[in-house]
Nucleic acid binder design. Structure first.
Ligand SMILES: [Mn+2]
Ligand SMILES: [Mn+2]
Ligand SMILES: [Mn+2]
Ligand SMILES: [Mn+2]
Lengths: 218, 218
DNA sequence: ACAAATATTTAGTTTTATCTAAATATTATT
DNA sequence: AATAATATTTAGATAAAACTAAATATTTGT
């Protein structure tokens, strides 16, 4: 697969939320920051290659083979992200762009050895699971912080949005993955929350809460 | 620069032996395993971009700017090679192909942090010097093993040929960089040598000796 | 100095990945 | 059910990087 084909495969995979959902041409175009006509061309090619199922006007989905390729790319992307943070002093908001390049490097040995070198990590710096070599991963049960009732306590295990502004916000407010969070109070009017984290009580907007995943402990 | 442009720049750099020599179209074509007509197109483009000096029928050389790019690529290539050997259990004959891809990853922070992570290595697994961020490196005085007189003793510091067959040969015969070598005897007829290495005396052909660099100690 | 051999460039194609503009299909609205 | 809005595809064009075949320039050998 070419770099471009690989990025399309990943886009279809992510838009389908990892399940094998059919996604629209326009959705792919938006994700790839390209034009719908370019997408049509590409998904025809992917279809010819046996990577995607394409019915004109009906959207596109990945074949089993396509799913495998997607999972391998996700695996590589997330392993490189771990490497950048763990070994090269990158912060979690700086890794995506570089991993977007590194995921296309072709070498099975490289990936396997990287995995080993990092101690077979289960999640990337944003809390997203890393598929095994065979493409398997367990999805941990997690809930968005704005959807749990007051009184819920849990561990912060991931972010939904991994854009730089959001991650920088979390850094600034000293919120990290692994922190224990207790929902103290919820404002009816705007859905904002008072949460206890690291012995401090802080106030966060609903929009922030809607992008933080919690593994509920109690 | 595109990946392809970068590989051409490196080819011109290496054919010019690092000095700013003019190299022929055909030489570049052979190095790049491509056709001379493709080279003509590319060096015109590099010339337009201010990377190369090109006079039709007179060959091509790098501008200062081109030299800088070449050195940055060589730096990245060799740092990645060190990483693969030191951290990911690659052997020295497996690294080139992967480094050929990794050298094109664009991230200044990545390179600087990789350099730091590796402890600012001075040479790659084949004994070739790693340019500093500014593009500087000292070339160590080294001689090919087949060109030194009998009785010379030195340390094996590099290989001229870094093809897999040659490197595998050295592995098989337990010859590594850093080993002390003493030239015992030289056969007039075929230029083959008896050398003492790691307390053992072994016989090597002139062709082998012609690809091993020695830093002379005595 | 001329012819032959070699090196290099030019002209014209191909493939990949993109684009714009126009055509067509699907979905939503009255 | 017809029309309007939206989504998608088709047609045709462009740029990058390669190729082949033919033309031209340079170098070599006599
Ligand atoms: Mn990518
Ligand atoms: Mn991630
Ligand atoms: Mn390369
Ligand atoms: Mn090397």
């Amino acid at each position: 697969m070419t770099l471009s084909e690989e990025d399309y495969i990943k886009a279809i995979y992510h838009l389908g939320k990892g399940e094998n959902t059919t996604v629209s041409t326009n959705a792919v175009a938006e994700q790839m920051e390209t034009k719908p006509s370019s997408v049509t061309d590409m998904i025809k090619k992917l279809s010819d290659k046996g990577v995607a199922n394409y019915k004109p006007y009906k959207g596109v989905s990945l074949t089993e083979y396509g799913q495998k390729i997607a999972l391998s790319l996700v695996r590589k992307h997330r392993l490189w992200e771990v490497f950048l943070v763990e070994n090269l002093n990158f912060s979690w908001d700086e890794v995506h762009e570089v991993a977007e390049q590194l995921e296309h490097i072709k070498s099975e040995k490289l990936v396997d050895q990287l995995d080993k070198h990092l101690g077979f990590p289960q999640v990337d710096p944003h809390g997203d699971p890393i598929p095994s070599k065979k493409g398997e991963f367990k999805k941990t049960i997690k809930k968005l912080l704005n959807e749990v009732p007051v009184g819920t306590s849990g561990i912060c295990v991931g972010v939904k949005d991994s854009s730089t502004p959001f991650l920088k916000f979390l850094d600034k407010n000293d919120i990290s993955l692994g922190d224990t969070v207790l929902v103290m109070e919820k404002e009816e009017f705007d859905g904002s929350l008072n949460i206890k984290i690291k012995e401090k009580i802080i106030h966060i907007s609903n929009q922030i809460a809607a992008n933080l995943y919690l593994k509920i402990t109690e």
